[in-house]
Amino acid sequence: MLVDSHCHLDYLEREGDSLEEVVTRAQRAGVGRLVTISTKLSEFDTIRGIAERFAAVYCSVGVHPHEAGEEGVEDPQNLLSRCAHPKVVGIGETGLDYFYEHSPREAQQRSFRAHIAAARESGLPLIVHARDADADTVAILQEEHARGAFPGVIHCFTAGPELAQAALEIGFYISLAGVVTFKKAEALRETVRQVPLERLLVETDSPYLAPVPKRGKRNEPAYVVHTAEKMAELMDVSADELAEATTANFFRLFSKVPAPQ
C-alpha cells in the first residue's frame, strides 16, 4: 500500500473532477490513504467535508503562506479549535514562500510560528511549505524547536541539503512529489539519496506537479505510484520495500490516522 500524504482534492473538484472517481482510481492503484490539505481557514469546512465523505481520506487545518496576508493565523487557538475532529490529522500547510511572495514575509513568519505552536500543543504533525526561503525556514524551525519539540514534514521537498539536514536533525520527515522525477532535478535527487529511507514520505501535491510519465497532465493521487517508483530507484530498494517503508513512516508521523487492519 502507498499513501498520498499531501493532495488538494478540493482543487480537483473545483476543476470539475469527480472525487468519487479520483479516490476510486487511487485505491485501484494501491493508494490506501490520502490527506487533503487545507490552505485557507475560510475553506476548511469544505476540506473537512471531503474527508468526511471518504473512509480513506483525512485532512489538515491551516493557512498556506500565500494566504498569510489575508488569513494568516496569529492565535494558535484558531487551529486548535478545529483539531478535535477525528478526520483532522495535521497542521498546515504553513511555512514560507519567498518565490512568489503573495503575502508579506513578516505575515508569513507570524503565521508559521502560530502553526508551530498549534502543532506543539496538539501533537499533530506540522506540514511545511518552503520555497526560496531555506535560511529563514531553518532559523524558525530551530528557534521554535528549542522552545519545545513538535513533529512535522517538509512537504514537496525541492530545497537543498542544508534544509534537509536541519529538518532531519529536529526529527522531521521529508516528503517527495513529482518534481523528483523531472529531468532537470538531478540536484534534488542527489539530496534525496542522503535522506534515510525511514524518514521519507511520498505525495502528489495534486493537482500540481504530475510526475513523469504523466507530466503535463492534471495530477491526481493515483499518480503517486510513479513518484514512488523513482524514489525506489534512488534509494536502491524494490518498489514494494519503498511502499512498505513510506507507508510505515506515514502512520508513525500521522499517528491519528488509523492503519488498515
Rank of each mutant, 00 (worst) to 15 (best):
A164P: 07
Y223G: 00
F99E: 11
C156N: 03
S103H: 02
A149I: 00
A135S: 09
Q109K: 15
H129F: 09
F251G: 11
S255P: 10
L168N: 07
N219F: 06
L209V: 14
S38N: 13
H145K: 02
V237G: 03
L141R: 04
A51Y: 01
A167N: 07
V237I: 13
A117K: 11
L12R: 03
E198L: 01
E162A: 13
R48C: 08
G30V: 02
L234T: 01
E186M: 12
G72H: 01
V3G: 03
L126W: 02
R25M: 01
V153F: 01
P104S: 08
E162W: 04
R25I: 01
G148W: 11
P125M: 03
V61C: 15
H155F: 05
H115M: 04
Y223E: 02
E198T: 02
T158S: 14
S255Y: 13
L163N: 05
A135D: 13
I116L: 10
P76T: 09
L168H: 11
V195H: 07
Y100R: 15
A228Q: 07
N78T: 05
L79S: 05
S255A: 15
A84F: 07
G72Q: 05
V224I: 09
Y100F: 14
T158K: 03
D240M: 00
S81V: 14
V225L: 12
G30E: 00
I47T: 14
M231H: 03
S5G: 10
R53P: 12
K256Q: 15
F99A: 06
D134H: 05
K183W: 03
A133H: 05
E70A: 15
Q142E: 15
M1G: 01
K87H: 09
R53V: 14
D4M: 01
R189I: 04
F254A: 07
L126T: 10
R199H: 07
G216T: 05
P161K: 11
H66T: 06
A177W: 00
P260F: 08
V138S: 05
P196A: 10
P65C: 04
D4Q: 01
L19C: 07
H226D: 11
F112P: 07
F250W: 07
V22A: 13
L163C: 03
Y11A: 10
G16H: 06
C59Q: 12
E93H: 13
Y173W: 15
R147N: 09
A245H: 00
T137S: 09
P125V: 06
L188S: 06
E229P: 00
F182V: 03
L41D: 14
P76K: 12
H64Q: 11
A185P: 10
A232Y: 06
V23P: 04
T227D: 07
C83M: 14
E203K: 08
L234A: 02
I140V: 05
L9F: 01
H66R: 08
E15G: 06
A259G: 05
A114N: 08
T181V: 02
V225N: 11
H129D: 09
L200Y: 00
A259H: 04
R82V: 00
L200D: 00
E71F: 09
A245L: 00
P65D: 08
L197R: 03
E21W: 01
T246L: 02
I47Q: 07
R105K: 08
R48I: 00
K87C: 13
P161L: 08
A167W: 04
